[in-house]
């Protein structure tokens, strides 16, 4: 039996919706945000509309049941029910959406806030666009010394950072679950691999309080490490972060 077109549309729509929910929520274990899903479904509807109405024949089939519902005198009882139920559903939806709730308002946190052009750290002004890791040069010039620096960076990391960012640098340290936002996962391709070392230097040295105003509120518990670590230690720990995760810092130079 051929499924009516309108039903096809509805079934596909529901199928895609459920698929998004199931795949992200259960298979991958990372639910899809509702704000994104709303927009996704909006464009899925647009796509369905396009596919199902690009020929006249298909369009007629699609709207035929709706037309019949509105025009066919034989369907008066169904029509009356639909005309009462649909507005009621819409009303219920609007009521639920407008209902005050006790949730904190939605928050937006930019993962890569735009850095200021210069930043004052250790009573010194750094130009973030030109700042480079002074220890990076040893990677080529003196690999032995570089290994040593990375090892020192590792020590700094274990002493200070691993409580939150985890001993595997995966953002899953012993205290991580207590924090919101949770600490960044450096293993992920979307974090430090996208950034220049100067950006990390800025983020480590000035911590949560040093984040720019735009995209507030910032609730990051990241300490202001310039108060606890020396400049050298920060650069070393940056070496370690990249070395351990196997990522390469973002640069604009050809190798």
């Amino acid at each position: 039996m051929k499924i009516p077109r309108l039903l096809q549309v509805v079934l596909i729509f529901v199928g895609i919706y459920v698929a998004f929910k199931v795949v992200f929520g259960f298979v991958l274990g990372q639910p899809i945000p509702s704000s994104l899903l709303t927009m996704y479904m909006f464009f899925v509807v647009a796509g369905l509309f396009m596919v199902f109405t690009f020929t006249d024949e298909s369009t007629r089939e699609l709207v035929a049941p709706i037309k019949a519902l509105v025009e066919d005198p034989a369907r008066k009882p169904v029509r009356n029910v639909v005309f009462i139920v649909v507005p009621l559903l819409a009303g219920a939806y609007a009521f639920n959406v407008m209902l005050p709730d006790f949730d904190a308002p939605l928050e937006l946190r930019s993962i890569h806030p735009a850095p200021p052009s210069t930043v004052k750290i250790y009573d010194q002004r750094y130009d973030l666009s030109t700042l480079e890791n002074p220890l990076r040069k040893f990677q080529k010039d003196d690999p032995q010394k570089f290994r040593l620096l990375v090892a020192e960076g590792a020590e700094v990391y274990i002493r200070n950072c691993h409580y939150c960012h985890g001993d595997k640098l995966d953002g899953n340290g012993p205290y991580a679950q207590g924090l919101n936002p949770i600490p960044l996962n450096f293993q992920d391709i979307g974090t430090i691999a996208q950034l220049q070392e100067s950006f990390l230097f800025w983020r480590i040295a000035t911590g949560g309080p040093g984040l720019p105003d735009e995209g507030a509120p910032w609730l990051s518990a990241m300490p202001v490490w310039e108060n606890f670590l020396s400049e050298d230690e920060i650069w070393k720990v940056i070496l370690f972060l990249y070395d351990y995760t196997g990522h390469r810092p973002r640069t604009w130079e050809q190798e």
Binding site: M39, L106, L108, P212, D213, E214, G215
Partner: peptide, 9 residues
């Protein structure tokens, strides 16, 4: 309304 309102500094 579809995107978060960010007030530039």
């Amino acid at each position: 309304f579809g995107i978060p309102e960010i007030k530039p500094a």
